[in-house]
Amino acid sequence: LGAGARMDIGCLVILGVLAFAIPLLGSIPVWFGIGLILIFAAYLWRAGQSAGDEDEEFVGVAALIVSMSTKARRITVIALFVVSAGIILFSAEPFAEALVASGQSLGIDSYFLVQWLAPLASEAPEFIIAAMFALRGMGAAAIGTLIASKVNQWSLLVGSLPLAHLAGGGGAGLPLDGRQIEEFTLTATQTILGVAIILALRFHWIPALGLAGLFGLQFFVTDTSGRYVLSAIQAILAIVFLILHRSDILPTLTAPFRRPRPETAEESPNEALAEAADSDRDPRGGSAREAGAARADA
């Protein structure tokens, strides 16, 4: 992953830690939601500050929008936001009601449908974009898309829930039942495990398969005690990866608060040490000191 990913991962670490406050509180207070939304606003500002100056390659619709004049481009982007928001506003409630009614008529748990089918429909564009990046050999962009999506979910999405509850006539906090607290705990540990794995800006296939396996396992572990055990397993694995990547913890946590550097790449301490060791090697093998001694003897 590139240097910019460290800032995104740092924001996700902070949000992942804050997420554990929700199960402890047993609700999502309005003040907590406002704080999450402010974090999202700060993340957007920080991401804009750290954007690189290099030219990027645009394809498809993005290339068409970029080719427009500044005024036309701004009007088009604003129109896309307005139209999208209008479609979501008018279709969200009928979709949710139809989803619950379908579950009741088919004998399927409505909570399961709301928890999995609805997010699958709403997050499908993100997965499609990430898959397109991956198929084009742009793995860093694919992972970056998913990280940014996760930041959005833990900040703007979760933060807007108590505000929507308040606007709908609810109280100053969104109360959670036992099942919802269990799901927040499970999701929070998944987030921490995910960021612990990619903390060193590397995403190897073995941890990726393990992470996918743990995610799929929750479909078969449906009881409360089992899901808490699964959360504990994920937390333990996260601690293990944090220990392995301990030299990258501080740079990641401070990345959201540091001024962006002009360089386009950033090395972890382990990578810097490895590069320094390699640079001290003679091209034919052996260290530079050994090569100099051999020439002196000759």
Results as ranks from 00 to 15, higher is better:
Ala298Cys: 03
Glu54Lys: 05
Ala47Asn: 05
His204Tyr: 14
Glu97Asn: 13
Leu120Glu: 09
Gly194Tyr: 01
Ala142Phe: 00
Gly170Tyr: 01
Val195Ser: 02
Ala277Thr: 15
Ser27Lys: 10
Leu166Trp: 08
Gly107Lys: 13
Gly173Val: 04
Leu64Cys: 09
Phe32Cys: 02
Phe58Val: 07
Met138Lys: 14
Ser287Glu: 07
Phe133Ser: 05
Asp280His: 13
Ser231Arg: 07
Val30Ala: 12
Ile243Phe: 14
Glu93Gln: 11
Pro283Leu: 02
Ile236Lys: 01
Leu38Phe: 09
Gly285Met: 05
Thr70Gly: 11
Tyr228Ile: 04
Phe241Gln: 00
Leu25Glu: 14
Ala291Met: 10
Ala62Leu: 12
Ile9Arg: 02
Gly33Tyr: 03
Lys150Phe: 07
Ile88Gln: 08
Phe95Leu: 13
Glu267Asn: 06
Gly194Val: 08
Ala21Leu: 14
Leu156Asn: 06
Val195Glu: 01
Ile14Cys: 10
Ala42Tyr: 13
Val221Trp: 08
Phe184Thr: 10
Ala296Arg: 15
Gly292Glu: 15
Glu183Asp: 12
Arg259Phe: 06
Trp116Thr: 06
Ala148Lys: 12
Ile181Val: 14
Thr70Val: 13
Phe58Ile: 02
Cys11Tyr: 14
Trp31Phe: 12
Glu126Phe: 05
Gly210Asp: 04
Gly178His: 12
Ala298Asn: 08
Ile143His: 01
Phe219Glu: 03
Glu123Gly: 08
Ala79Cys: 06
